[in-house]
Amino acid sequence: MERRTIFAGWKLPLLLVAPQLVLTFVFFYWPALVAAYESLTRTDAFGIHVVFVGLANFRDLFADPLYRAAILRTVEFCAAVTALSLGLGLVLAVAADRELRGRNLYRVLMIWPYAVAPAVSAVLWILLLNPQIGLVGRFLIAHGIRWDYALNGSQAMLMVVLASAWKQVSYNFIFVLAGLQSIPKAVIEAARMDGARGLYRFRTVVLPLLSPTLFFLVVVDLVYAAFDTFGTIWAMTQGGPAQATQTLVVKVYNDGVVNLDLGSSSAQSVVLMVGVVALTALQFRFLGRRSGT
C-alpha cells in the first residue's frame, strides 16, 4: 500500500485531511465521549443534580430482564433477516449467473429494490399484511387464520423480518453474482469433466470458492438488520405489541427520546458501539486477509 512517488510538503496535506478529521471528531469522538460520560452518571428525579454512579447503569442494564430479552430478540431477528435475505439472494444469483435470454433485464429487476427506503418497505408490507386492508392479511383471515400483528407478537416479528429481509435481498444478489462471475470458468469446466454435476458440483466446488463473499455478506447483513431496520420496525409496530419487536436500536430510541432516560440510553449506546467495533474488527481481519493490506 505504500507508494514510492509522493509529493513534498506537509502543510497542504494537513489542510486536505482537516475537514474530514474535524467532522470525525465533532460527530464521532465527541458524541462517543458524551455517551461514555453519561453512561457513568445519573440525573436525579428533578433533573438538577448529576451524580457519578460508576458502572451502576451497566449493572442495572444487564440485570434488567427486559434488556436481556431485547438482546436475545435482536440476535434472533438479525439471524432470521440474514438467513432469509442471503438465502434468497444466493438462489437468485445462481439462477442469474446462467447464460439466459434476457439476463440483463433480470439483473435490473433484481437490483432496484436496493433503492427502497426501509420505512417505505414497511408501508408496502403493511399494504400486503394488514388484517383490515392487506391483500395477504385478508386472505389469511378469510381462511380461518387469526392474523393480527397488532395483537400477536410472533406475527409482528414475522412481519418485520419479512419486510426487512425483502429489501436486503438485492444487496446479497449483487455480491453473490459478482462472486460467482469471478470464479474462473476453467475451474467449473474441470469439475464438469471430472463428472461432478448439478448440486454436487455447486456444493463441493462453487460454494467453497464463494465462502469469503458469503462471510462478508453475513457481517453486512447482520449490521443492516441490527441498525438500518429501525425505520421498518418503527413504521410497522413501533416495537410492539408489548415489546415483541423491540430490537436494541428501537429500545435506545424508546428509552432515550421517548422516555428521556439518558443514563440508561447512553449505557445502551456504549454497549452497541462496543458491539459494532467488534464486528468491524471481525470484518477487517477478513478484508485484510483478502486484499493483503
Partner: peptide
Amino acid sequence: WAIFVTLMLPVEVRIIPTYAV
C-alpha cells in the same frame, strides 16, 4: 486510523449523544 475506526459506527448507534452535541 482516527478516521478508519469510525468505519462501521452508524448514526443509529450514537443517536442520543450526537443529538446532545
